[in-house]
Write a protein that binds this DNA or RNA. Sequence first.
DNA 1: AACGTTCGCTAACCCGATTTAGCAATGGAA
DNA 2: TTCCATTGCTAAATCGGGTTAGCGAACGTT
Lengths: 354, 354
Amino acid sequence: MSRRRVTLADVAKAAGVSRTAASLVLSGRSRELRLSQEVEQRVLRAAEELEYRPNIVSLGLRTGITRTIGFVSDTVATSRLAGDMIKGALEAARERGFMLFIGETEGDAELERLLVQAMHDRQVDGLVLASMFTRTIKVPESITAVPAVLLNALPERPTPLPAVLPDEVEAGRRAARVLLEAGHRDGIHLIGAGPDLRDPSESVAAVERLAGIREVLAAAGTRVAGAPSVPDWQPEYGHAATRELLATTRPRALICFNDRLALGAYQAFDDFGLKVPADVSVVSFDDHPIAGWMRPRLTTVALPHYELGRRAVEVLFTEIDREQPDPGRDGEVHRIPMPLRDRDSVAPPSGSPC
Amino acid sequence: MSRRRVTLADVAKAAGVSRTAASLVLSGRSRELRLSQEVEQRVLRAAEELEYRPNIVSLGLRTGITRTIGFVSDTVATSRLAGDMIKGALEAARERGFMLFIGETEGDAELERLLVQAMHDRQVDGLVLASMFTRTIKVPESITAVPAVLLNALPERPTPLPAVLPDEVEAGRRAARVLLEAGHRDGIHLIGAGPDLRDPSESVAAVERLAGIREVLAAAGTRVAGAPSVPDWQPEYGHAATRELLATTRPRALICFNDRLALGAYQAFDDFGLKVPADVSVVSFDDHPIAGWMRPRLTTVALPHYELGRRAVEVLFTEIDREQPDPGRDGEVHRIPMPLRDRDSVAPPSGSPC
DNA sequence: AACGTTCGCTAACCCGATTTAGCAATGGAA
DNA sequence: TTCCATTGCTAAATCGGGTTAGCGAACGTT
């Protein structure tokens, strides 16, 4: 709506030189091509006075580089934490002067194809294929045209694409250690480890967390006392499963596989007049915002969403920068540590074991 | 990394015609320019066989239209439902074949300037300036080059930009009506309406919600019984303010200005052994995910994030499509209805009034 | 004096599309 | 036959940059 953009031609004219000269100066190649200091100064001054900014669209056409990456995810909305993932990706991109296209597939393969296509049409320099739950995905064939990274996802079949994932096994170990260090040995129950999860997307995290938990408990000479199955990781199922548990036993500690389940568990303890952490300790995963709002505040092993997003973009940049394909790095998996948020829901066991 | 993209020139060669002819056919202008059916068919067949897709970067350079809009927000991550807002924007954009650049300013004006610049450099066709809380913002001068819409924000000083906002006043009325319809007249207290909010960004919503509440209560011949002030809309302040209230009186109904405050209020009622909704009804705003997880499930007036995002982009499209500036529509404000989520936290008053 | 170098700069082409202007062939009218 | 219209298509310019090849002048060498 205002005046026309300033182009390189304008700068060249103002400086009284050719477009070539202006281009060379502004891309820092004036030394190499031995332009005079005189010309260099004139061009720089003109560019500054006119507030010249190169048109990236034009640049993209000529060089094939658009300083743009595509972030394709299944869902940004349903998970609260997605925002942090995008934020991490955004900041890492910004540090290199890149912008992000965002696209949502809703898990629809056809939509995904169209989106990836639309991004190719805009000549993105790379793609992040993100999932909001850790899970295995089918990598669309159409992505081969450009470097890509899987975020929070593993390929169904082996691909040369690198992947960035939370270190769920270590998270499982960490959760178990929290209880061990508080002195717990017996009556440790699991909520959410059920083998028959309705939503297979949650099973990767479940399997890996469980592995870490088992490993650490075994090393300490103890084991999980029980694990009622839940169909889904929602508060109501956490509530139901915990009630079921309380009907027959008095657990000393609970490892909930996410914070929503823990919220349900809290409600069940409330029903039975049990106090956290005096009667029962609770440790969980994810660090959902509610974890800090619950009473007592929930000790949980955090999903590092911000860091995941950031690392995905950083790994993508190394792919973009790499001249030669390096078969040695094919399918490299980057595991991001899941930090413990040590709050108020764990205490030493008291009273007699059950 | 695979073969070169198919260009218009490839299609033209395959069809044995000039690039001009191919371009005309593919942009549907072959009739108008009277190309033969013969040529038309050949071009279409070639394009299909080669799976030709126009390069949007090139198109952007030539036509100035990139089918891209920039979504600049202060924060996508920290706030509640930003994801839904982006989702709405994304879908509305996709329906027109547009993609979205996402950018975060963190409320930093300089960063905002740089971002808007970076988007201009990529020739976005329009901009959405979003805020995650309803509030007034300083519109950067640099946006004048392209159509723009304010989302969830009002300009500090009058501008010709349209704005899309939740209808907070009507939301206030709606909350008040819920209580009136349940039979409440007395002992209606407010949490979060305090005049001394620490964070002014929340004040627009607060002021407007309060206006709606007052209006409806006044029309019913009653009024707010009290409104302890809170420094911030966080659970702990909701908890503290409600405890303070309970120290001196027994409210019959609470209107919390957001769901996090309501969560804190629930905890305070719990402390005092009061039951929601038997002893006290609670109605709130926002429809944060926890609203459905609380027990009893919280009745709340929802922020229509998805709809806000969608409408912002739709309004932006009408701006983009508009040939002439239309002074009549300058600064038009679109209010999006906030729907009531009628759940379980409101009941008729029982016992004697206080 | 003739010739090769170096210096300092620019003309011209390229990326992949759209669009304007115009050309060759045909048909019809004068 | 000549001239003008119409039909059917293409050459060439354009968008805003990057890049290659090469040009003229000054200088140094033999």
